[in-house]
Design a protein around this nucleic acid. Structure first.
Lengths: 190, 190
DNA sequence: CTAAATTGATAACAAATGTTATCGCTTTAG
DNA sequence: CTAAAGCGATAACATTTGTTATCAATTTAG
């Protein structure tokens, strides 16, 4: 886990060791719910291998809002940060191995880390990046057709297209699975 | 301008005075472009009175992405923070009076402010709030029908519905102006 | 004050998208 | 290994949504 972070960040070794001490490794089969819609997120996950999605209920149908692959940090971020009931259910969609930590252990350490200017700036940039990602996502709905959204995904996140069942992709794009199938057929012809 | 901030934040008087010294007041008529799509944002605005929107071009049509009313801080946030070309055009939609500051003057002051824990936490919370807002917006497109998105707006931002022309609202919701008119008619009947 | 522009509603039609059901083909569980 | 579940394609049909054009009412610019 931390070999990866090390390549990407300026976190020093001592910080890393402190963080690592709070994480434990766990494995789950596919379709395991790690956080249910309505619960408050008390844990954070680092995906070592496998894949998850967050989804929510829309008139009895599951709508997928986001995917997470290995080497990413996952939490129901708004629930984790604000201690509000999660809007989403977090569920594995492949057999998945993660590093888990409890929020109560991590929070003091994070506050300490943010005292230091370099880390603080990294942290702020990371949140901003998240903001821009969501902005782009919102934008894609008013700016692009479903076909364009699919093509963007093919270009920008080809791993998702390869690994993830098509009906999940469809709801992520905001269309029905039948319609996505039609779009693919049309694209094949042209 | 700063009377307002004062009520809402923990900024001390000395900080406020330093910030205020960088702002100047300006007024524009309706339909004034303050930042064009493709330019890098070098200014930040505090709206004293009036109303703006940010929009972008979609196949020759203007699509409205966001509105800003008085007492809010406005910039093409991703352009301002990352110094990248703005995705949006910022334009007034009413006669508008703003406080303006230049990014080059504000940045050093902001860095200094963020040294202090209380301000830093405020700042981080503010960015997170922005993230959650965009998350909700993305979510609304996969989770809700256009009619539900309109009703949410009526409930949560009634000022927008009252003040802003319907065709702007329509593109903000992600539908055509004709369709919004139809939705309103249907709602009247029920 | 007056002409021009903007706004919101509406109709008629076209295109996009959803729903339901069916059918092979994989994959998974036991 | 075998039965069950999951998956992707497809067809038929219903519904939603977009497009274009028109009109009356209102607002704006000069």
């Amino acid at each position: 886990m931390f070999e990866y972070i090390d390549r990407e960040s300026v976190l020093t070794k001592s910080f890393l060791e402190e963080y690592q001490s709070h994480f434990r490794i766990e494995s789950y089969p596919s379709k395991t719910v790690l956080l249910a819609q309505g619960q408050v997120a008390e844990k954070i996950f680092w995906i070592e291998s496998g894949c998850m999605r967050i989804w929510l209920n829309k008139d009895g149908q599951e709508v997928t809002f986001q995917f997470f692959l290995e080497n990413s940090l996952v939490a129901s971020i708004e629930s984790f940060w604000q201690s509000t009931p999660s809007l989403f259910t977090l569920e594995t969609i492949e057999p998945t191995t993660v590093w888990v930590a409890d929020k109560k252990d991590l929070k003091p350490l994070l506050d300490k880390t943010l005292q230091e200017e370099a880390y603080r700036n990294l942290f702020i940039d990371a949140i901003f990046q998240r903001t821009f990602d969501y902005m782009q996502r919102s934008l894609s709905f008013v700016q692009s057709t479903p076909e364009q959204r699919y093509l963007n995904l093919v270009e920008q996140r080809p791993e998702l297209i390869k690994r993830i069942a098509q009906h999940y992709i469809a709801s992520y794009i905001g269309i029905s699975k039948v319609h996505l199938s039609r779009i693919k057929k049309k694209l094949l012809k042209s």
